[in-house]
Nucleic acid binder design. Structure first.
Lengths: 228, 228
DNA sequence: TTTCGAATTTAGTCTTATCTAAAAATAAAT
DNA sequence: ATTTATTTTTAGATAAGACTAAATTCGAAA
């Protein structure tokens, strides 16, 4: 007997985490997500995943056909985006108000995102001045799950004299974020491509109309820019 | 085999809640706390409590003698005070930064207090400017569990011309807090007793050197003031 | 189309935290 | 000093979420 999701569907913390993982794995590819994929993402065993998929299927936040992986439903997508919204708002709070570094916020936000209080999130959003992007540059969905997805381009694909703002990194590992920091760049920085070296594809970048820096093609390829 | 609490003792969320309840029930009275008391406080059944007491006893955060109730240990008290510290810091945050009302914060703080991150609490404390009292006027323990317990007196017991700061209310029901608010008083307000009416014991109070208000003896008896 | 290997599910166990019902211990009263 | 009433504990169940080991299913290769 499927859960008639009349109004609100309540998920446990574990269910929220699985759904979020499934949502992330679904992004881009239109195809279903396999049990093994989810197990890897969640760092659990496939057997545990099978169990959870059955439960999420009953709650109709995913479509689950045994042996054929899962598709997230519209309802599921909405719930996943709500969790992601909470996660990213908390990240903004931690960085902007509590002076956490980019690479310190994930674990804590992972806990904070499960606090159940619509009012809290509403107020937090207002307090942070309705941010549209988190400290890694990922967009923050609104309360209906809508994302203001702005076009992005990898920095190494930009032409000389083009300008924009760094909004995200592809590989957001702590190591890379620290490297970025050391170079003098950061999420949110306004940049301009001053030169592209033909020899090795490296770039000369002007940051915040002040500092110039050089970066390899590989590093630049890992940086996403919203052009302006 | 008792848990050798060498360094850090980690408690689950449920264990933290039980320990906090036991700590609160222990306050004042030097005597032990009964299984039934804990069950009432936690809104669970005595059978569930027995089980939990055994576990908390093994972790040496309480002293548990079957059929004779529990005493909290020094280690347990320290842990309980850490949870209380987190709870009250979050309450300050909710009221001062997110504009929650006094009577809206408890439930949410009850969830937030279980977030595990010493750094988070450290930063939050600094961000809030190291508050010593929560929005209800209850003291916030420091990171070692020490409480700056300042002497308090009921407002109706103060003499004419004495001054102080409202730091707590005895009955912190939503109704009373709203009544206080409507009168123009609040936790943290600096007050001075202008007059005491002999006829009915009611008081005339100066709030923040601006507003005068009158309150009955009963209302004043419910307000705690730190004299200055 | 049969077989083989990888992926997936099922079955059974464990832990935490709860419950109900029944047993046992304490405390109080005759 | 017994009996009775209350409190507390034990025993056995349940539900969530995880695991291991065993069984099943799928799909690709021969």
């Amino acid at each position: 007997m499927p859960q008639s999701n009349k109004k609100s569907m309540t998920l446990t913390t574990a269910e929220e985490n699985y759904l979020k993982a499934i949502y992330h794995l679904s992004e881009g590819g239109k195809k279903g997500v396999s049990t093994n994929d989810v197990a890897a993402e969640m760092k659990t065993k496939p057997a545990s995943v099978s169990d959870m998929l059955r439960k999420l299927g009953e709650k109709e936040v995913i479509e689950y056909r045994k042996y054929y992986g899962v598709h997230i439903t519209d309802e599921g997508k909405k719930l996943a985006l709500q969790t992601i919204r909470k996660h990213r708002l908390w990240e903004v709070f931690l960085v902007e108000k509590l002076n956490f570094a980019w690479d310190e916020v994930h674990e804590v936000a992972e806990e904070l995102e499960h606090i159940q209080s619509p009012l809290l999130i509403q107020r937090l959003d207002a307090y942070l001045n309705y941010p549209k992007f988190d400290p890694h540059g990922d967009p923050i969905p609104d309360e209906f799950g809508d994302v203001r997805a702005r076009p992005r381009v990898a920095l190494n694909e930009m032409e000389v004299d083009q300008t924009g703002q760094i909004v995200a990194v592809k590989d957001s590992s702590a190591a890379f974020l620290r490297h970025l920091d050391k170079m003098g760049a950061y999420i949110g920085a306004r940049i301009k491509v001053l030169d592209k070296v033909e020899f090795d594809g490296s770039l000369e970048i002007l940051v915040d109309q002040k500092k110039t820096l050089f970066m390899s093609k590989d590093v630049a390829g890992n940086i996403l820019v919203q052009q302006s």
